[in-house]
């Protein structure tokens, strides 16, 4: 970074620290905080979408869609997210490649599973093996994102279907009395009205989502936990900046980051809740304020 840092072994303590904290590896560490924030920013709306679609699915007249949606929503209540993360991204990756293989390399006769090897043709690989490093990283990030969205989408589905049931019957009945169709009742009454009932659950979900991000490193994303372990681990003199085991300091940094995130979130969410409850001068509106 700086010219001063060319030979770390000659530096004074102050400059050593400055140089140490500005190595390329440390910048990767700082960037990984952004990665976590970006993941949160995309995963939250995506989960909400998954959850919303699943909720609609549970009300479908098609019983296959209905059962599938119900299974999906209830599934994650039963499975710890770590377990899910350990095999789902790999399965997703193979699933995508399998589809691409069938479409792109339909003329290849060799089987995809050779023993326990999973072999797709070169051009079906995701991303292509010739792709730049950042493409691979983006792909891993996308898989992680999908895995998060699947897990938290199910939670969101849980919250949203509960919220829909909580919308007072009188409101939908009024709609029916005015001659609304089922579809109109759903989109014009149920959907706009359910949010106020969903906010406490969704706020909580956001907090869980924040606290699930340390598991990102399991999904092949070089996240803050990965770098904290890597940078904090003791370094022998094979490295330019040898130091003993400093993982505690790095993890302390992460702890502060997470406490700040959850603290700020809870402030914002509280305000949002008060704001939304204001319009709803119903029993439910008052009930919600307790939470």
């Amino acid at each position: 970074m700086f010219n001063v840092c060319a030979d770390p072994s000659t530096l004074t303590e102050f400059f050593w620290v400055i140089c140490y904290l500005t190595t390329a590896k440390h910048f990767a560490f700082y960037v990984s905080f952004l990665v976590v924030l970006v993941l949160l920013a995309i995963a939250a709306p995506l989960s909400l979408l998954f959850g919303f679609v699943a909720t609609i699915g549970t009300r479908s007249s098609n019983w296959i869609i209905q059962i599938f949606s119900k299974c999906y929503i209830n599934m994650v209540r039963g499975i710890p997210d770590v377990v899910f993360f350990l095999f789902v991204p790999l399965a997703l990756d193979q699933f995508f490649e399998f589809i691409r293989h069938k479409i792109i390399c339909f003329d290849v006769v060799e089987p995809i599973w050779q023993g326990t090897d999973f072999v797709v043709c070169k051009s079906a690989k995701l991303p292509l093996s010739t792709a730049e490093l950042w493409v691979h990283q983006l792909y891993a990030f996308t898989l992680a994102l999908i895995a998060f969205a699947i897990v938290f989408g199910a939670f969101a589905g849980n919250v949203l279907s509960g919220a829909m049931r909580a919308v007072p019957k009188t409101q939908t009945e009024t709609g029916a009395a005015f001659g609304f169709t089922q579809k109109q009742i759903f989109w014009r009454i149920l959907v706009p009205q359910m949010w106020i009932y969903a906010i406490p659950g969704l706020s909580n979900l956001w907090m869980i989502l924040i606290k699930a991000t340390p598991l990102l490193f399991l999904l092949g994303v070089e996240d803050i936990v990965y770098w904290a372990r890597e940078l904090g681990g003791s370094k022998t003199s094979m490295y330019a900046y040898p130091h003993p085991d400093w993982r505690v300091y790095y993890f302390a940094g992460l702890l502060v980051f997470y406490l700040l995130m959850t603290w700020a979130s809870s402030k914002v969410l509280k305000r949002l809740q008060i704001k939304l409850s204001k319009g709803q001068a119903t029993m439910a509106g008052k009930e919600l304020q307790g939470y």
Partner: peptide
């Protein structure tokens, strides 16, 4: 050819300060 390594087992393989 993509070569998989751990990057945490010096002197076999590791990541230097420049990443």
């Amino acid at each position: 050819v993509r070569m998989g390594t751990e990057g945490a087992y010096m002197p076999y393989n590791g990541i230097d300060d420049n990443g």
